[in-house]
């Protein structure tokens, strides 16, 4: 039979090292409790650590895209209400044209109608010069330039005219998804001005062009009833053109709302994922902690009992 000598020092050392072990485990649990994290340093669980850091990145991206989406939505709805006012103005112009198309009208009356058309043009140009967040929304990327100059009854577009993709103003709403909520004013509202190469000729496009022609026809002496009548249909077309864009804008706003919901959902799911990786299970940990405290107490009391007896007690 092999009897190993259990020396007194060995006994003491092993009791102390066991108690230390138990305290160490307890300390680790307390650290988890206090920080609320089960992974406090990368070596606790390298896999979970990189997961936590990746989730942090995703979450931050979500936050940014979410705020971008919200910003884009606000700009789009600002644009939407501008377009709404412009449509109302154009409809008023159409009514005026209908009114003026009767040859019964005196030329003085047509003069008055013409003046009102002039006012409508001014307010459309003013609306087109709307700023959102100190940016001109219908000037493309020339955000610091007003869309229209309105001097001398001429309405000249001064913003960016290129429709190439690189000249668009984008808002990023996903890793590879940009959205533009700022159309070029020229395409939407047109222009009306004297051709610099030929002073007898007028350049007239879009709603402003049609309004300019209408205004000039009404102001002419004698009034050009034929042209006034023709502009009724043209103005109707202009309203349709803006309405078509407004529908597109509505679709974009719907997409934005959808994206917003998607990001809100993703945020919750990533937060959950992070919590699973990082947060302690308090219930489980409490019961483990209670158990570990018991183990420590047991090791203390057993240790005390083991150190006490020796032959010395019986001599």
């Amino acid at each position: 039979m092999y009897v190993s000598r259990i020396t007194t020092n060995y006994l003491n050392n092993s009791i102390i090292s066991n108690i230390n072990n138990n305290r160490d485990i307890l300390l680790g649990m307390q650290e988890q409790f206090i920080s609320g994290n089960k992974v406090n340093k990368p070596s606790d669980n390298p896999g979970a650590a990189s997961g936590i850091m990746n989730t942090n990145t995703y979450l931050s991206k979500m936050e940014t895209y979410l705020s971008n989406v919200k910003g884009a939505y606000e700009e789009a709805s600002a644009s939407d209400s501008v377009l709404d006012s412009i449509i109302t103005k154009l409809q008023r112009a159409k009514d005026l044209a209908t009114q003026g198309s009767q040859e019964l009208n005196q030329s003085e009356q047509l003069q008055m109608l013409g003046t009102e058309i002039e006012e409508i043009m001014k307010s459309i140009a003013q609306l087109a010069n709307t700023q959102y967040n100190s940016k001109y929304i219908y000037s493309g990327i020339n955000t610091k330039t007003a869309a229209y100059s309105t001097a001398d009854g001429e309405y000249i577009y001064q913003g960016e005219t290129s429709t190439a993709e690189k000249d668009q103003r984008f808002i990023q709403i996903d890793d590879n998804m940009n959205i533009s909520v700022s159309p070029l004013g020229k395409d939407l509202f047109g222009e009306y001005y004297t051709d610099p190469d030929n002073p007898d000729n007028k350049i007239a496009t879009g709603a402003l062009g049609d309004l300019g022609i209408l205004r000039d026809a009404m102001m002419a002496e004698p009034p050009d009833y034929e042209t006034v009548r023709e502009s009724i249909d043209k103005l109707e077309d202009d309203v349709q053109h803006i309405l078509t864009y407004r529908t597109e804008l509505g679709n974009t706003m719907q997409t934005l709302t959808m994206m917003e919901n998607k990001y809100e959902d993703l945020k919750i799911s990533y937060t959950n994922q992070k919590s699973n990786l990082q947060d302690v299970d308090l219930v489980g940990l409490s019961s483990d902690l209670t158990y570990q405290q018991m183990v420590l107490q047991a090791s203390l009391s057993i240790g005390q009992q083991m150190m006490q007896p020796s032959l010395l007690n019986y001599m």
């Binding site: 190993s4 259990i6 020396t7 092993s14 020796s310 001599m315």
Partner: peptide, 24 residues
């Protein structure tokens, strides 16, 4: 190492009971 320390300690360490028996 703890295991080796134990074995080593059990060779050269002092066991109080042993000493008390020797004393008697």
């Amino acid at each position: 190492l703890a295991l080796i320390t134990t074995q080593r300690e059990s060779t050269f360490g002092v066991n109080l009971d042993e000493e008390l028996v020797d004393l008697m």
